[in-house]
């Protein structure tokens, strides 16, 4: 009986170890991110930080998924050449181009564009970031 318990325990232990080492089936993209089956592809929130890492938004952003626009009013006098955009995305999505730091948004006539790529990497949606400055 004692022998039976020990052997069963050992079998369970090794089975557990093997199952924990089992490789995930989902593929990984060039950024090391999982390519999943999700088709969601949209921006959920938008933030703009100044050089002091404080928000420069004077209002909440208006995100229009149908039109592919994010309209954001910023404080009067905000330094548009040194802004740090932050986009929250739907689950498993990624952004192109990547945001690596301060970005120049001073060319108001030519808004910057970012593309959201879905979790399955099949759907792409481009958003135009339209900045307006708070009137004095």
């Amino acid at each position: 009986m004692k022998k039976f318990v020990i052997i069963s325990g050992l079998i369970l232990f090794f089975a557990g170890m093997i199952s924990s080492c089992k490789k995930n089936d989902l593929p990984v993209d060039e950024d090391g991110l999982l390519i999943t089956t999700r088709t969601d592809c949209y921006v959920t929130n938008f933030e703009l930080l100044g050089s002091d890492f404080q928000t420069v938004r004077s209002k909440a952003p208006v995100i229009d998924t149908a039109l592919g626009t994010i309209t954001q009013e910023v404080f009067y006098g905000a330094d548009l050449k040194n802004l740090w955009p932050q986009l929250s995305l739907a689950q498993d999505c990624k952004l192109e181009p990547k945001i690596t730091g301060k970005t120049d948004f001073s060319d108001l006539a030519n808004p910057r564009q970012y593309t959201v790529v879905s979790g399955n990497r099949q759907i792409r949606k481009t958003y135009k970031i339209i900045i307006t400055v708070q009137p004095k």
Binding site: S58, F75, Y76, G77, Q134, P135, K136
Partner: peptide, 9 residues
Amino acid sequence: SATASLKHA
């Protein structure tokens, strides 16, 4: 200003 945040500048 009634519309903008200027204050200490």
